[in-house]
């Protein structure tokens, strides 16, 4: 294994994050804090408890997931798209590295950034609301699964995109609606029965539900099902990435 290459890519990508610390860390933390102020304090104070949890506390897991998902996609898609755009990808393609090592470097760095952001948001949230984590190990497992899966998804997006518009259109038109409709700000059980059924086709519902369970032991769907769906999503992304590398799709001619 070319560990030097993995380290080089990882270090290079992490350096990019620290170079753009305002965009990479401050911006998502600020926007999430605004959600806490608006939905948690201002509007939340007028909303009754949900399953015995104050509204401000209830939205914390969903908001962490919202940030982690969007940042994971953004970080990893940009990480692979930018070298494609500038042409510097030639160096990675001509290096003595396997596809797994390339993936480990790029996705590993992007996932690390997402975990850092998730942790900072969690710490920030504790300043606004009372927080308890009932199952820390499960919480970390869901956080890691989500970070890695969405970083892989972002990697796929970055390889597929052949323009800046394509790079942003999927997060805006697909991921954002799915996360907002995935139970970030509400419990699925609060919806009319028909919408509850429709919501179950949204994969984000399972991730947020499972993550929220690790905090308050309240979930819209069973934790086992949430975990199963998260692993299925991860496996699907891995299979697509494997296919990309085997065929050289949009990377090698």
């Amino acid at each position: 294994m070319n560990l030097y290459a993995v380290k080089a890519i990882y270090r290079y990508e992490m350096a990019r994050m620290f170079r753009t610390v305002v965009q990479s860390i401050v911006a998502p933390v600020l926007s999430t804090s605004l959600y806490f102020v608006i939905f948690g304090s201002a509007i939340g104070s007028r909303i009754t408890e949900i399953d015995g949890v104050s509204y401000g506390s209830f939205i914390v897991p969903g908001l962490i997931m919202l940030s982690v998902m969007t940042e994971s996609i953004s970080n990893s898609s940009f990480a692979i798209y930018f070298p494609k755009f500038t042409g510097t990808i030639f160096e990675v393609l001509s290096a003595p590295v396997s596809y797994g090592e390339v993936l480990l470097g790029y996705v590993g760095a992007a996932a690390t950034k997402s975990v850092i952001i998730g942790t900072i948001i969690l710490a920030t949230a504790s300043l606004f609301v009372d927080l308890e984590v009932a199952h820390p190990v499960i919480m970390v497992a869901f956080l890691l699964l989500t970070c890695v899966s969405f970083c892989l998804f972002g990697f796929i997006l970055g390889v597929w995109a052949d323009g800046w518009e394509k790079l942003t259109i999927v997060p805006i038109l697909v991921i954002m609606p799915l996360t907002f409709l995935g139970g970030t700000f509400y419990s699925i059980s609060m919806l009319p029965p028909a919408w509850q059924t429709i919501s179950l086709f949204n994969p984000v519902v399972y991730l947020i539900s499972g993550f929220r369970w690790s905090f308050y032991e309240n979930a819209d769907v069973s934790v086992a099902l949430s975990l199963g769906m998260a692993i299925t999503f991860l496996a699907a992304c891995l299979l697509i990435v494997r296919w990309i590398f085997r065929t050289g799709y949009k990377l090698r001619t």
């Binding site: 070319n2 030097y4 290459a5 380290k7 080089a8 890519i9 270090r11 290079y12 350096a15 990019r16 170079r19 500038t86 042409g87 510097t88 030639f90 160096e91 990675v92 001509s94 290096a95 003595p96 590295v97």
Partner: peptide
């Protein structure tokens, strides 16, 4: 390989970009 075009990492320093290349090709 020195390619025909001049693709460079615009926001990276000369030292860092060279160090990256060395690591990428498996050298300490």
């Amino acid at each position: 390989l020195v390619p025909q075009e001049m693709p460079t990492e615009s926001f990276e320093t000369v030292w860092n970009t060279c160090r990256f290349s060395r690591g990428l090709f498996g050298k300490p």
